[in-house]
């Protein structure tokens, strides 16, 4: 097989699966086949989608972050409480929420890098921390009535042609664009892939491994906080229980997008298609109405399994020809 096509096989697979799913849904459900539905895919999966962008970068580096859902929940209630109870301006509230998120990420990254603790354990603890803190602030959901916020909630950009891009949809596109630039066009992004591909090589090449790893967890948690703000805008309220299990969806989107869960290999475009696939499944279930929403999780789980197996087989092919040394860690 040609190297370029082999390399991009998961990406192609993702795009094809999306196309098939979308066409199937379009045939099965009246009114599914429209730009409105397509745009709504992004609006409805905005929060998960934004966290998936950050998660992609973390997974590039060979790590994982299970705390993003909790960070989303914390951010919504933290922002809502600052605005409603303490009269802080939404922009300031959002900024401090993002700063807190970044601090948590830096803390977790430090534990992972300096103390060599497994990422899943540290971020699981981070999840408890953020969720507990959210419930500490309030166990009830709080509506946000600040006029600026209400305006944002209702705002949509209409470039014409019946397109209606909500703040949430715009935020996903922005996140994807930023994520794409970071992944493809910065040293940091390429260092992440190098680190995930082979940490030993990255060290021998003299790459800043420590700073890169701590940086990506910081960036991801800040991104999750931004997703939380989008969630607050989308729902017009803060809810400490928002985003339970969201991290799994985000991880699933990344993997369905063809990014290797053990790190070192992937593409931000894949995450774009991953979001579309995830959104299509959710929307189709919504359109159907008869099927249990539980199918969403099962299908996502099966896709996850399928992609992991696909990558496993591909890697075997590669490692049989190459020395395979650095694939052994899988």
């Amino acid at each position: 097989m040609k190297t370029s096509s082999r390399r991009n096989l998961p990406l192609f697979a993702t795009a094809v699966i999306f196309a098939v799913l979308f066409v199937c849904a379009g045939v099965m459900y009246d009114g599914f086949f429209s730009t409105r539905v397509l745009v709504n895919l992004f609006t409805d999966t905005a929060v998960t989608g934004i966290t998936a962008v950050g998660m992609t970068l973390v997974i590039f580096s060979g790590g994982i972050d299970l705390s993003v859902g909790a960070v989303v929940g914390f951010t919504t209630i933290f922002t809502a409480t600052l605005i409603q109870k303490h009269g802080v301006h939404p922009v300031l509230a959002a900024a401090s929420a993002v700063a807190l998120g970044a601090a948590l990420g830096a803390f977790m990254g430090t534990l992972i890098q300096v103390f060599k603790q497994p990422p899943f354990l540290v971020t699981l603890a981070g999840m408890f921390l953020a969720r507990g803190a959210a419930w500490w602030i309030s166990t009830e959901s709080t509506e946000i009535t600040h006029p600026f916020f209400v305006h944002l909630s209702g705002y949509a950009w209409e470039p014409g042609g019946g397109l209606r891009l909500t703040v949430a949809a715009l935020a996903v596109f922005a996140a994807l664009a930023v994520g794409y630039v970071i992944a493809q066009h910065t040293r940091f992004g390429r260092n992440l892939l190098a680190l995930g591909g082979s940490e030993q090589s990255a060290l021998l090449m003299g790459l800043p491994v420590g700073a890169t790893r701590i940086g990506v967890y910081t960036l991801n948690s800040a991104g999750a906080a931004l997703a939380g703000i989008v969630a607050a805008i989308y729902s017009g309220s803060g809810n400490p229980s928002q985003g339970v299990g969201l991290e799994l969806d985000a991880i699933a989107i990344v993997v369905i997008g063809g990014t290797l869960l053990s790190g070192g290999r992937g593409h931000m475009l894949g995450t774009f298609f991953g979001i579309l696939i995830f959104g299509t499944i959710q929307s189709a279930l919504l359109f159907d109405g008869r099927l249990s929403p539980a199918w969403g999780r099962i299908v996502v789980g099966l896709l996850l399994l399928g992609f992991i197996l696909l990558q496993r087989i591909m890697l075997r092919g590669v490692s049989r020809r190459g020395d395979g040394g650095s694939f052994l860690k899988l």
């Binding site: 799994l248 991880i251 869960l261 053990s262 249990s292 539980a294 999780r297 789980g301 399994l305």
Partner: peptide, 24 residues
């Protein structure tokens, strides 16, 4: 497969299966 990766699959799908069993 890495243990985290392998068990993550069931972690995601399993809850869906449970919901399906009781119809949510």
């Amino acid at each position: 497969l890495q243990p985290i990766v392998a068990t993550l699959i069931l972690m995601v799908a399993g809850r869906g299966v449970a919901q399906l069993i009781t119809d949510g």
